[in-house]
Amino acid sequence: MTSALEHFGEVAARAAAQVILGYSTSFGTATRLLGPRHRQHVRTIYALVRVADELVDGVAAEAGLSPSEQDAALARLREETHRAVATGYSPDVVVHAFARTARTAGIGADLIDPFFDSMRTDLARSRETGIATFDAAAHEAYVYGSAAVVGLMCLRVFVRDERLDADRLARLEHGAHQLGCAFQNVNFLRDLADDTERLRRDYLGSSTRLTRRERDAWIAQIRRQLADAESVLELLPRDARAAVRSAAWLFAALTDRIARVGPAELYRRRIRVPDPEKAVIVARAVARTARERR
């Protein structure tokens, strides 16, 4: 017989899964390719990350919360996340679902705190006059907390039942770190209009408007990050590989599309990969994984 806590956990997991369906078609598609033992865990990670991200990107402000109230709301979410991971329970279904995943996969404060630090940076930068600009050091710290640690959280889910030597684990962690950074840098390029006009943030450190040379430098960096991640994909458990490969290839295709338009166009519209092309990329990733011998 299912206990009350188990039943609540199942309901929380289903509720958390709705977040990715509502916010990201690309990641939603990729998670469906994960093996059943991983799928829900990755969705719960995404749900918590998305809830925090929406809080700092204007949802709380639109609801009428003052800057100090937004700070307090983020602090409460952070505290509740730590409490839930420690105890195994939260009345907040998204936090509860994440805590179950964290306790299963060994996700602790070493990854949770940098994430919330980056979210707090967004709130602080939102109160600067003019456009808040991130220099190279601030960019690196922000991207580590907002994206690289998310990749590392997912990796802990994927390898939780594996016996890994130190070299293989280090290579996988580097790949997860690089893939998270690539995803975030791509999003900075495709979200230039919203980031600069609505959020008043310049994550890419451009002194004025992003130049073609600066755009090309970011494209080159993203491609290096994706290549690093691609080089270790075969070290992942097979039931995680097709999903991660699909996501990486989708963002590679998005990077190619961004590279083909001028910076001015990036300030006018959000570049996307058409659904038929996405379907082809996913099919190729699944076929490639099926051909691998291990």
Rank of each mutant, 00 (worst) to 15 (best):
Y142Q: 03
A176K: 10
A109D: 13
G175E: 12
R171E: 15
H139P: 00
G106A: 00
T121G: 04
T133N: 02
L155E: 14
R156C: 12
F115H: 04
T129D: 14
I112V: 08
L164G: 15
A137M: 03
A166C: 05
L123G: 11
V143R: 11
R103H: 03
V143H: 10
D167H: 14
G106I: 00
M153P: 15
G106F: 00
V157A: 03
V150L: 07
D110K: 05
T129G: 13
R163N: 15
I112M: 02
I112N: 01
V159H: 04
L152I: 01
D161H: 11
R160M: 05
H139T: 01
H96D: 13
R171Y: 11
A99M: 07
L164D: 15
A147D: 08
L155T: 14
M119Y: 07
M153G: 12
V157I: 05
V159S: 06
G145V: 08
V159F: 05
L172R: 13
D117C: 10
G145M: 12
R168S: 15
A166S: 09
E140K: 12
R125P: 00
T121R: 14
M119N: 07
A132P: 01
R171L: 15
D110S: 09
A97V: 00
H177M: 13
M153S: 13
A147H: 04
A132E: 10
F115V: 05
G145W: 08
V157N: 01
A137C: 00
E173N: 02
L123Q: 11
T101V: 09
F158G: 13
R127S: 02
L172D: 13
Y142H: 05
L169F: 07
L169K: 11
D167S: 15
D110M: 04
A176P: 12
A147Y: 09
R100C: 06
Y142C: 03
I107K: 04
R125D: 12
I107D: 07
I112K: 02
E140T: 07
A170W: 10
T104A: 13
L169Y: 11
T101I: 08
A99F: 06
S146I: 09
A138L: 10
F115N: 04
R125W: 09
Q178F: 02
F158C: 07
M119V: 11
G175R: 06
D122Y: 03
A124Q: 14
H177A: 12
A138R: 12
